[in-house]
């Protein structure tokens, strides 16, 4: 039994980004790509619980930071979806893993690894993420007496970074997210919550933690995810 978690890093271009390793740290079996923006904060605890469960079954995992998110030194307004895609490829190469488990918006960042085995939790379109963030911006503007429209934000985002729900989204990232769909990959297994009616390979009982007002855990969901991941890699 080894459920210790330690920091490591992976190279992306001239930089290094942090990642967390659980289990036998030298060679993680599964690379975990986190959700994007606020959803990452709200689901991180749940993901760590997944990693601990898998470590107890001697399945090692790596949870990566995407450039410009979490502890990254890259300024947040310089992040882009293409950079995140490169970083997932770079981290998978560095860790020599061929199993990618991506969550929510993180699934949009796995495009460059079409030959890998993919496990995906609750895929979401980039446009849907933007929509929630724009609604939050509009609601907070409204509370300060300013009326903002979605069309105005979309126009503004074409030329300069826009602040959406605490995130600086530059024009490249905005336009990439507008057209980003979860990729249809050859070897993929899609998991969703039981309360989600869209097609999937397995429905899991649990909460949509990305909706929770504060970050929270859901131990039974973490265990269910860990079990399905373990079955998926055949262990």
């Amino acid at each position: 039994m080894n459920s210790s978690i330690e920091f490591s890093s992976y190279p992306i271009g001239e930089f290094h980004e942090l990642c967390l390793l659980a289990g036998k740290p030298s060679r993680p079996k599964i690379l975990i790509v986190p959700p994007l923006f606020d959803e990452m904060n709200r689901m991180r605890r749940m993901l760590i619980d997944v990693m601990r469960s898998l470590a107890n079954w001697e399945i090692s995992t790596c949870l990566m930071d995407l450039p410009g998110t979490n502890e990254s030194m890259l300024p947040r307004d310089q992040a882009s979806l293409s950079l995140w895609q490169e970083s997932v490829q770079s981290c998978a190469d560095h860790m020599e893993t061929n199993h990618i488990a991506s969550f929510r918006g993180g699934i949009l960042a796995v495009d460059l690894l079409p030959a890998a085995d993919h496990w995906q939790f609750s895929p979401i379109k980039g446009r849907t993420l933007l929509r929630t963030m724009m609604r939050t911006r509009i609601a907070s503007d409204k509370e300060s007496g300013v009326i903002t429209k979605v069309s105005e934000l979309e126009e503004l985002a074409k030329t300069k970074p826009v602040e959406l729900a605490g995130n600086q989204i530059n024009p490249t990232l905005f336009s990439e997210l507008q057209s980003a769909h979860p990729p249809e990959l050859q070897n993929q297994r899609v998991a969703r919550l039981l309360t989600d009616s869209k097609p999937c390979d397995i429905g899991l009982e649990g909460s949509a933690l990305w909706l929770r007002a504060e970050p929270d855990s859901d131990i039974s969901l973490s265990k269910a995810i860990a079990k399905d991941l373990a079955d998926w890699i055949g262990q």
Binding site: T128, T132, R135, T136, I138, D196, S197, A208
Partner: peptide, 25 residues
């Protein structure tokens, strides 16, 4: 109290997603 403006934004988008509807703000 949990139902603040950010939660409402998430709620609307999630309903759109789960029920396959579009909500005009």
């Amino acid at each position: 109290p949990e139902l603040d403006s950010m939660a409402v934004a998430g709620l609307l988008t999630e309903l759109e997603d789960r029920l396959d509807i579009m909500i005009d703000d």
